[in-house]
Amino acid sequence: MDGFESRAHDRHAWAPPRMGVTVERRDPWELVSHGTLAGLLAGLGLGLAAVVASTARRNDPWLPFDFAVAVVVGPEALAPTFPAAASLVLGTVIHTLLSVLFGVMFLGALALTFQLSARPLMMLLYGVVFAFLVWEVNFLAVLPVIAPELRGRVDLGTQLWNGLLSYCLVYGPLLALYVVRVRPGTLDRWWRTGRADPEVTTAENL
């Protein structure tokens, strides 16, 4: 009953009501800048994974770029006559912009739900779930609306490796890993319970 003894006979000073050690802060600039960096890192990983998968499976490293471009210019981007250089530049720009956008959204969602300081494994789970939602909303809801011509033109293997799996196994986990390593907005790792607090000044009347 050591715990009970210490609680029952606690002689520490009282903390101010409703106060605690702040573990997270929400600084918009910090969220945007780190969201951008996380998005760039995860987007780079996703792009590499897509190119490697496409090269290995179809011997076509350009396909992921063509698909990214097709979102904007339509199915003609998938035609063999579409210039490879344009596909490379435009595809990279579009992919990067979307990666950064979703990276910022990920950081924003974490901050809004007080999850910037989440346990590392939970953060990994958040990354995977977020990436799945991005994939689902983008490819199942948005893409059919803005590029209906792409419906049914993608074989299962491509969609699995270049789509769902690369999102859930590369993009999301990389976003999460960035947050776990850098911990933007995190002031205290609350699950490390052995650490002592900094000195706290209490209100005079307490």
């Binding site: 520490h12 000073a13 605690g20 050690v21 802060r25 007080f114 002592a196």
Partner: peptide, 27 residues
């Protein structure tokens, strides 16, 4: 036990060198 939660939705944790009660944990 504080720290044994698997998930939390709060911007604070409770003091280790001050007394507090459960009401202080509200967010």
């Amino acid at each position: 036990r504080p720290g044994s939660e698997w998930i939390r939705f709060t911007s604070k944790r409770m003091f280790r060198n001050l007394r507090w009660t459960a009401e202080d944990e509200k967010q």
